[in-house]
Design a protein around this nucleic acid. Sequence first.
RNA 1: CGGGGUGUAGCGUAGUCCGGUUAUCGCGCAUGGUUUGGGACCAUGAGGUCGCAGGUUCGAAUCCUGCCACCCCGACCA
Length: 489
Amino acid sequence: MSKSLPTRSENYSQWYVDLVAKADLAENSAVRGCMVIKPYGYAIWEKMQAILDKRFKETGHSNAYFPLFIPKSFFAKEASHIEGFAKECAVVTHYRLKNDGHGGIIVDPDAKLEEELIVRPTSETIIWHTYKGWIESYRDLPILVNQWANVVRWEMRTRLFLRTAEFLWQEGHTAHATSTEAVEETRKMLDVYAEFAEETLAIPVIKGLKTENERFAGAIDTYCIEAMMQDGKALQAGTSHFLGQNFAKAFDVKFTNKEGKQEFVWATSWGVSTRLMGALIMAHSDDDGLVLPPKLAPIQVVIVPIYKGEDQLKSITQVVDPLIAELKQKNISVKFDSRDTHKPGWKFAEYELKGVPIRIAIGPRDLENGTVEVARRDTKEKSVMQLTDLSLKIEDLLDQIQDNIYRRAFDFRENNTFKVDSYDEFKKKLDEGGFLLAHWDGTSETENKIKEETKATIRCIPLDAPEEKGKCIYSGNPSSKRVIFARAY
RNA sequence: CGGGGUGUAGCGUAGUCCGGUUAUCGCGCAUGGUUUGGGACCAUGAGGUCGCAGGUUCGAAUCCUGCCACCCCGACCA
């Protein structure tokens, strides 16, 4: 391992939960399995949303909004879809409460809904029901729509950001005239996700295809991006599905093609969620707290004055004000924390905990020398810099930090990815954590057996996996390429 | 839903086996003072239905019964 795990890695889960609390990102709510995203955590999510939304628009998509409630009968229309989600649905059965006569309230038994409503676990069904009314001709296609929404999946066990009963996400739902075009869309959005993960979140990802076992309920093909966390476990960070004509057939959505013939519409759907927040935390943070890539940090630069009395603060402010103006002009978000209710040391620790990429400290000593102290969060290096052209140097340093965080995560993944060629070696390496590249015979039986015996799943069949003759580590049957096995969140 | 565990102040906890004055300690909070270049110190103070309900007892955080909530391990999963 090139990078040491957090010192509390003997209980990585606990480390994660503590960090989410201490960095003021989110907390468990009083509602079972749900979370409260606190203002600081939400600010980071908003930045993710803004950057993704821009990319969606650039790739030709528009936003729309569909209902939270889906009639139960809609789900029954696509067999594998209902099978996949049936076990985790919240269901609305009544629409009214009444007094129970003892000062409490009960559900009014007379207010039972004729047809139950499902709180959406995903929106394919309601959207394809709606699309039926929008599509008649090839001239109506493609439809390229995205929705920002909340969804509910009644998970047994939950964890902040990674798996909560309710979560925020975006779901793109597109309709196309041809299979080729739909597949292109699926791949294009996978690329958008991969680029976002790597360039914005600074998390290297592997693009790949899911096996039948891990495929989205109702999809022909599920593509994904897989990331490695600092404990060596895998996290699925985003998915893009080629749905074929499954939903068009289920909801009877046909269009007339150029030849005047009726055809079913081809579909895709793709999504990323607040789980990305979990990925961000687990991929970069250390024992001193969050490490945020500059492109996502709500505060990119914090300025901490060190002063005694009003007069010193005034002199510092005179130097700092023009600097703040310059940074803001470069679209760098900067906070000047001149509160006298906390000491400088307290503030240093606080902003490190919150992952602010650059801290500038300025005190009497600096005023004399025309300098500041610049500390970077990723390496914790401190250096004294001249005030001259400081905003340029800060701008440059932010880029360096962004690159360094990515490089670090990339090296970590490379150093924890292993080729294995026997089942014994597989089991041994698996306990050390990381991704295992191994041959697999392509059957669900083998995949299930390995999962039962080791808890490892096939994360994906990498898109760029080279052709290589080999034998399945479990069955010994022939295989043509290596797939990625890992234990996953 | 199966197995294990825990509920005491905003947070973390001692006390529970073996019942006995005013429920312990730390963090945090408030006030005053000294401090301020890496989470300051001293002093004073506020804050409690001991998860809930019932029972045993002169007396219950402690014993008994029932219930509830949460956490961990499994099945499920963006």
